[in-house]
């Protein structure tokens, strides 16, 4: 027990420090050099202070969004891997992101022009789409028998992914070329949110999910071994599965509607963290969230500087790093 506490403290300190430093440093790095003194120079009005505008309007929201999305996807990855008892599970395995993508595609193609509290129709529609996918998968998993079949969950998720992908292609095919380009861009992930509205909209959902995550590690430890053994040790298996499924799905939906379906974070980060801290969820879950935040913030800095002034989608960078890593993991498993 004390050993776990100590490992938790050390990893929280190390990964937390990494996340903290990356969020602090990211707004200072970019193609234009800005001076911190000018950023916080109160004597210049904000409207004339380009350094402050770059810091507060362009870079800080990006870094914060990156931290939230990265932490959420990494933590959701850990939860899904434990819930499905499959090390190759990702937050997108159960179709949440495909549902979100379909919602976003429809909003773009149907030219929905609504916005509430700085949240555009595309963001809202993608969140609604992800909820739709979650509802369908859950109904499937519950349909056959009492309890919660993770096998059916997996199969339903994979099928739903394929089905939604077909619908996405269909919608994209009917769109005109400008819209098709925008839908494609959305699928690559983007953290340039220019403002704090979308962050404030996603934050409550992520906060609720993280509150659930705080309760999950101990039952997940038992669950990831064997459901029967977990039940015999007094774990309410169905309840844990339900909480894990809904909290991770909702968090994924919120993260995807904020930054698009940024791939591979939910698989690289948990596995890297496990290599370092072991497999106890009481340590892996918080450490993954912190490392996920640091990782996405750092990759986003690469995305916005490497080809400047052209903006490279962050999803391309994470996939370029994640793809080979995933393959290595696959080979190493055997």
């Amino acid at each position: 027990m004390t050993d776990v506490r100590r490992r938790l403290a050390v990893s929280a300190l190390a990964f937390g420090g990494l996340a903290f430093v990356s969020v602090l440093a990211a707004p200072l790095i970019g193609t234009t050099s800005i001076s911190l003194r000018r950023v916080f120079d109160g004597s210049v009005p904000f409207a004339d202070n380009v350094d402050a505008q770059i810091f507060f309007i362009a870079r800080l929201p990006r870094a914060l969004a990156g931290a939230i999305v990265g932490a959420t996807l990494a933590a959701a990855g850990v939860v899904f891997q434990a819930l499905l008892r499959n090390p190759l599970a990702t937050p997108f395995t159960l179709g949440v992101s495909a549902g979100a993508a379909l919602g976003a595609m429809l909003a773009i193609t149907l030219r929905l022009h609504l916005s509430l509290w700085g949240v555009s129709a595309v963001t809202a529609a993608s969140f609604i789409g992800s909820l739709g996918a979650v509802a369908i998968v859950y109904a499937m998993a519950r349909a056959r028998r009492r309890g919660f079949s993770t096998n059916i969950l997996l199969l339903a998720g994979v099928t739903l992914n394929a089905f939604f992908s077909a619908l996405i292609l269909f919608v994209q095919y009917l769109a005109d070329s400008a819209e098709a380009l925008r839908t494609m861009r959305w699928l690559m992930g983007d953290l340039d949110i220019a403002g704090y509205g979308p962050i404030l909209a996603a934050l409550p959902l992520c906060a609720v999910a993280f509150a659930a995550f705080a309760w999950l590690p101990r039952p997940l430890n038992l669950l990831s071994l064997d459901t029967d053994a977990a039940a015999s040790r007094g774990v309410d298996v169905l309840r844990v599965q339900r909480v894990a499924f809904f909290s991770a799905s909702m968090a994924t939906g919120a993260a995807v509607s904020l930054g698009g379906p940024i791939g591979f974070i939910g698989i690289i980060v948990p596995h890297l963290v496990r290599l370092i801290v072991g497999s106890d969820h009481r340590v892996v879950l918080p450490a993954s969230a912190l490392f996920g935040a640091a990782f996405l913030v750092a990759t986003d800095v690469v995305a916005r500087t490497v080809m400047a002034p052209i903006e490279l989608p962050v999803g391309i960078i994470t996939a370029l790093i994640g793809g080979p890593f995933f393959l290595w993991l696959l080979v190493r498993q055997r």
Partner: peptide
């Protein structure tokens, strides 16, 4: 303002526009 980039169209970050 992006006349120096030899491309027909491109996506840019808000930061670049601020600059």
């Amino acid at each position: 303002v992006f006349g120096d980039v030899k491309r027909e169209s491109m996506m840019v970050a808000t930061e670049t526009i601020l600059v």
